[in-house]
Amino acid sequence: MTVADEPESGAGRLALFLGLSLIVMVFAVAVATAIGDYNIGLKTVFLSITNELGLTGADIAPIEQSVVWNLRLSRALVAALAGAGLAICGAILQALLRNALAEPFVLGVSAGASTGAVCVIVLGVGAGGLSLSLGAFAGAFAAFALVALLSNGATSGPNHTILAGVAASQLFNALTSYIVTTSGNAQQARDVMFWLLGSFGGVRWPDFQLLLIVVCLSLTICILMARSLDAFTFGDEDAASLGVPVGRIRLMLFAVTALMTATIVSMVGAIGFVGLVVPHAARYVVGPMHLRLMPACAVVGAVFMVVADIVSRVIATQQTVPIGVVTALVGVPFFAIILYRARPQV
C-alpha cells in the first residue's frame, strides 16, 4: 500500500521546480547557441537544429548551420552535463563526508585529474583521446587514494578528510605546475594553464556522448542509493545501525565521483565551486533528502554552467574568460555566505 508518495514532502513542488528548471535550461542552451563572436538569430538556431535532426529542410546558410550544430550546441550541452555532474559529485561528497565544504575541487580530486591529464598532454604518456581520459581517471583515483590514506579511509572525521583534501590538492597542483614548467614549451604551458581553469572551447559531439552516458549512469546510481545517503545524516555508525552497508556504499559512490570528475576534467578542465554552490542552493529549494536533491542538483548545475559559459563569452569583448574564473566569481561570495551561516551559534 502506497500513500501518495511521501507525506508533507512537497512532491508537487519538486515536479514544478524541475519543470521550471528544465524550461530555463532549454532557454539558456538556446541563448548559448545563438550568441558568440558572430550572433545567430534564435529562429535560425532552431531551424538549424531541426534541419540536423532531419525534421525540417529549411534554407539555412551551411556555415551558420555548422556553427550552431557542430560548435555551439555541442558546447552548450557538454556545459550542461558538466554542471550537472559536478553538482551531483558535490552532493555525494557533502553527504558522505558530512561536511558542507566537500566537493571534488576542494578534496583534490580535480587537481589529481588535472595532473593525470597534463602527464598525458605534456609528457606524452600514452596517445590519443582515450588515454587523456584514462590519465585524468588515474589522477583522480590517485588523489582519492591519497585523501583516503591521509584520513584513514575517510573515517577520521569530516574535518580531517577536508584537511587531507587540501593537502592532496596542493600536492597535485604543484606536480602539475612542475610538469608544465619543466617539460613544456611556453605555448604549451599557456594552453595547459588556460585549460586548467576550465574551457569549453574544444568540445565536440563525441565528448557529449561519453559525458551523457557517464552522467546518466551516475545519476541513476545516486537515485538508487539516495535513501542510503540520507542515512548518513548522523554519521557512518548511525547509517550502519539503520541497515546501510556503509563500506560498500561509500566505495561505490566514491568511485562514481572519481569517474564523473575525471571525465569532466579531461574534457573541460578543473572547474571549481559548481560542486560546492549548487547542492547548497538546491537544498534551499527541495530540502536535504537525496531522492529529491539529486535530480534538483542535476538541473540546477546544468543551468548554472550553461549560464556561466554564456557569461564567460560576453563579459569581455573579443575574449573568452576561463569558465573557472566565472564560476569562482559567483562561487566565492556564496562560499562566504555558507561560512557565515555555519559559524558557531552563541
Binding site: 500500500m1 500513500v3 508518495d5 507525506p7 539516495a226 535513501r227 540520507d230 542515512a231 539503520l242
Partner: peptide, 16 residues
C-alpha cells in the same frame, strides 16, 4: 530515517 531498513531503494511511503 528509522524506516530505512524497511524500505527498498525506490519503494513509496507505506501505511506501515
Amino acid at each position: 530515517l528509522g524506516r530505512t531498513p524497511h524500505r527498498s531503494a525506490l519503494s513509496g511511503w507505506s501505511e506501515a
